[in-house]
Nucleic acid binder design. Structure first.
Lengths: 152, 152
DNA sequence: TATTGTTATACTCTATAACTATA
DNA sequence: TATAGTTATAGAGTATAACAATA
């Protein structure tokens, strides 16, 4: 009946593409984080948002917009979500009251701490399959690739 | 007035994370493709779909579901879009009429050819900032990282 | 007038659930 | 009953446009 025959799929040149392998690694990373992060109610993007806000007292939304290359409306929505959940505080800055300084609440700091442990655990697992030398190459090469593609 | 002072943003540990750099490279790659691909009316995901269908005569949707780790409904929608545009053909397979074999139309093959040139151009630009040795390390390491994260 | 941010709206991508058809 | 695929629906994530407040 030929029922359990798994078809052999050709990926054509796909697997030889650097862009393809970068994407595969990236989706594997997100899916790996998805489970533990869902319990916390955050996404990888929100983790990085919390990290940057934590490290930059009273950062403005427009600075975050520049960092992420997102539209200001998109960022406003993202900040809303974390703010509604009591993780982020917004305050008008006295120097220029058009700006809103962002900071983490105590609950936000707790959340960040837990999320950071999850991320570090993933990092450890990734580093188990590559050598320290390979790690250096990887970090440098990925940075240069991103930079050159952003140039135009 | 301190108007043109660009604030110095700290990324905390973010830039030392492998997962972060992989994501940065991946979003840079997608954004770089976005412009030329928009003119063709396709996405990077659709490009890879076209490539795999082209290389696998009468492939079934369920095989694609397994490759991509997507839900069958998601894939059905994606195939619909390309089918509505006349790029993909579906035909019931005589061996088992529950299966639909997918193939590219002539227009689909033309589209794939044009998209492939765009992707290859991006690959060339990425390879201009890394050595052949680094390329080897990158491909191998990214493959192993994706594999280990998928294991659980 | 220009800048910072919000809101309404819409589009894409994804999954879940209920369905049809075929086996 | 099980498998392959479709459709309706809903939830993220994103952008555009119109708006409000502040400079």
């Amino acid at each position: 009946m030929a029922k359990n025959v798994l078809p052999t799929i050709s990926f054509a040149g796909l697997t030889e593409l650097l862009g393809y392998q970068i994407r595969q690694a990236q989706t594997a990373s997100f899916r790996d984080l998805a489970g533990p992060f869902r319990k916390l109610g955050i996404t990888p993007g929100e983790f990085s948002l919390l990290t940057i806000i934590d490290a930059n007292m009273d950062i403005r939304q427009l600075d975050l917009v520049r960092i992420y290359g997102l539209d200001k409306s998109t960022l406003s929505v993202a900040v809303n979500r974390l703010s509604d959940r009591g993780m982020i505080r917004r305050r008008r800055l006295p120097q220029d009251r058009r700006n809103q300084g962002l900071s983490l609440t105590d609950a936000g700091q707790d959340l960040l701490q837990t999320a950071t442990r999850i991320v570090n655990d993933q990092e450890d697992r990734m580093k188990m399959v590559i050598s320290p030398q390979e790690l250096d190459v990887l970090m440098g090469a990925l940075r240069r690739i991103a930079a050159t593609l952003r140039e135009r």
